[in-house]
């Protein structure tokens, strides 16, 4: 099955890097869609079927955590696997993210680190 992926990140260059890593993995990637903030991300989710979400936290307009609250309150979206990719350093906030069952990758991140987090999503070989 091809995975449609949504990258929600305000910096275009980081979206490009994440995109390259996804395409370089062994995941069957379908469409890779991009959004610059949480509000745009929700708009994409309302119009496209998305199988995997990669979300930054600190973004203008709507931050990633607020966007994810909306996602997790929606029965049709709450089961989408999510990886949060952020500079967030506060242990309590990171723990709260992980306790919700979300993946977390700290910026700066290596390709290997992001691929490992992708692999946790279901034992997928992404080497």
């Amino acid at each position: 099955m091809n995975l449609n992926v949504l990258i929600v990140e305000d910096e275009q260059i980081t979206r490009s890097i994440i995109k390259q890593i996804l395409l370089d993995s062994n995941l069957d990637i379908g469409d890779i869609l991009e959004a610059e903030n949480g509000r745009e991300g929700l708009d994409v989710l309302n119009s496209q079927k998305i199988d995997l979400l990669l979300v930054d936290i600190y973004m203008p307009v709507m931050d990633g955590l607020e966007m994810l609250e909306h996602v997790m309150s929606r029965p049709d979206l709450k089961d989408i696997p999510v990886i949060v990719v952020s500079t967030e350093n506060d242990d309590k906030r990171v723990d709260a993210i992980i306790r919700k069952g979300l993946g977390f990758v700290h910026k700066p991140f290596t390709k290997v680190l992001l691929k490992k987090e992708l692999a946790k999503l279901g034992g997928i070989d992404v080497s």
């Binding site: 910096e11 275009q12 980081t14 500079t87 350093n89």
Partner: peptide
């Protein structure tokens, strides 16, 4: 964009220095 993202990551990794009493910094 590259310079701004590097600044973003560096700043994000510096501001925890200023966190206190459970309050953090928003960048």
């Amino acid at each position: 964009a590259a310079l701004c993202e590097i600044a973003n990551i560096i700043c994000g990794n510096i501001v925890p220095f200023f966190a206190k009493n459970g309050e953090i910094c928003k960048i």
